[in-house]
């Protein structure tokens, strides 16, 4: 199997001296292409930190992350940004959509940042998959939480990235909406052989993944 992600002795320390917090402590693991991994752990165990590092939105204290063999922290900030928009799709608990852009525009953002045009057919198909076809011109605050989260999934998927990283994507949603989101992620995992790493508190949702990694105090205690 093709290895798509390799995390190597990743360490992240916040603060100094007395205020020092070791959020991640030499975490190592690998993920293969097409895998659906769930990360679980108590609040404050370092899940988000790990995800941010993999997504390249933060830099580690030490350790490395390889995505498709690329050592991402060797990249300059700008190249990392470009790498991120092409190879990583991020999904957050609080959606993080731009409030002043409509659904379609939010989804198109990573492509447009690349200076490319979005293929209208692809976009329409994606919107259909997301169930947002009739909402494409709506602004985020005109949508329900589930719809907003589906928009952010659309944004994560538009560039067919190497990995989709989702930080408690259902944390803010009711169970019906949560199920829909989960279905969507599983669908893209199957249909496009999309690699997905998802943080969740919900053990039932986690159990639907191919593999579960459990963090405790910044260390992997299960599923390495």
């Amino acid at each position: 199997m093709e290895e798509i992600l390799k995390v190597d002795k990743l360490t992240k320390i916040y603060g100094k001296d007395n205020n020092k917090v070791v959020a991640l402590d030499k975490v190592s693991f690998t993920v293969n292409k097409g895998e659906f991994v769930a990360i679980i752990g108590a609040s404050g165990s370092g899940k988000s930190t790990l995800l941010h590092l993999i997504g390249g939105v933060d830099r580690p204290t030490s350790g490395k992350v390889f995505i498709e063999g690329e050592d991402i922290f060797k990249l300059s900030d700008d190249n990392l940004a470009i790498f991120r928009r092409r190879q990583v799709g991020l999904i957050y608990q609080f959606y993080n959509l731009l409030p002043i852009l409509n659904v379609e525009e939010n989804i198109k953002l990573p492509v447009e940042l690349d200076g490319k045009k979005v293929d209208e057919k692809d976009l329409t198909e994606l919107l259909k998959t997301l169930g947002l076809e009739s909402r494409r011109k709506h602004l985020p605050n005109e949508l329900s939480g589930g719809q907003q989260q589906r928009t952010s999934i659309g944004r994560a998927m538009i560039n067919h990235p190497a990995i989709i990283l989702a930080d408690e994507p259902t944390g803010n949603l009711d169970s019906k909406a949560s199920d829909e989101i989960m279905e969507l992620l599983k669908l893209s995992n199957k249909k496009y052989n999309q690699t997905i790493i998802m943080i969740t508190h919900n053990l039932e949702l986690a159990s639907q993944a191919d593999r579960i990694i459990k963090l405790e105090d910044g260390r992997i205690v299960e599923g390495e």
Binding site: F83, R84, L98, D114, R155
Partner: peptide
């Protein structure tokens, strides 16, 4: 947010 979806500094 723009940066997190990959907008460069430039």
């Amino acid at each position: 947010m723009l940066a997190s979806v990959g907008a460069t500094k430039k």
